[in-house]
Measured scan of single mutants.
Amino acid sequence: NQESVVAAQLIPINTALTLVMMTTRVVSPTGIPAEDIPRLISMQVNQVVPMGTTLMPDMVKGYA
C-alpha cells in the first residue's frame, strides 16, 4: 500500500511547506504520494490544513 503525505500539524493558509509539517501514512483515499515530499518543500497550501489531514493535489499551489 502506498503512503500519502499527511499534515503533521495545523498548516495555516498560504504557508510554505517544510519537512517538519508533513508525515506519511497509508490512507484512503490516497493523496499526494510520499515520494513527492521533496517536491512539496517550499510550496504553499491554498487552504487551512488541519493536523492529520491528507494533502491532496488541489490543496498545494502549483502542484497539480
Rank of each mutant, 00 (worst) to 15 (best):
A34G: 12
Q44S: 08
E35D: 14
V60M: 05
Q2F: 13
G31Y: 02
N1M: 15
T54W: 02
T53S: 14
S28M: 06
D36P: 00
N14C: 08
P29K: 04
D58F: 09
A8K: 10
Q44W: 06
V26C: 15
Y63Q: 04
P57N: 09
G31V: 10
R25P: 02
Q2M: 12
E35R: 05
V26Q: 15
L10H: 15
S42C: 06
E35Q: 11
G52N: 10
A16E: 12
P33F: 13
T23I: 13
A7G: 03
N46P: 02
N14Q: 04
I37A: 08
I32A: 02
L55Y: 01
L55N: 01
E35P: 10
A64I: 15
L10R: 10
A34R: 08
V20M: 05
A7F: 01
I41T: 10
T54L: 08
R25Q: 14
T23Q: 14
V60E: 01
T23M: 15
P12F: 03
N46E: 08
Q9C: 04
A8V: 06
A34F: 06
D58K: 11
V27C: 04
A34T: 08
Q44G: 06
T24Y: 08
M56P: 01
L19M: 06
T53V: 09
V5I: 09
P57Q: 10
T30M: 13
V60A: 02
P57A: 15
K61S: 09
R39I: 11
I37Q: 07
N46F: 06
V5L: 04
L40A: 01
G52C: 07
Q2P: 15
L55Q: 01
V27M: 08
R25G: 15
T15P: 00
I32M: 03
N46V: 14
I13M: 09
L55R: 01
G52K: 05
A8R: 15
L17E: 00
S42A: 14
P57C: 15
I13W: 09
K61R: 07
N1Q: 12
D36E: 08
N46H: 11
P12L: 07
M22P: 01
A8E: 09
I32D: 01
L40C: 06
N46C: 09
A8D: 14
V48S: 15
A16F: 07
P50S: 11
T18H: 04
L17T: 00
I11W: 01
N1T: 15
I32V: 11
V48D: 14
G31L: 02
I37Y: 08
A7N: 00
P57T: 09
V6M: 05
M59W: 09
D36C: 14
P50A: 13
M51G: 04
P33L: 07
D36T: 07
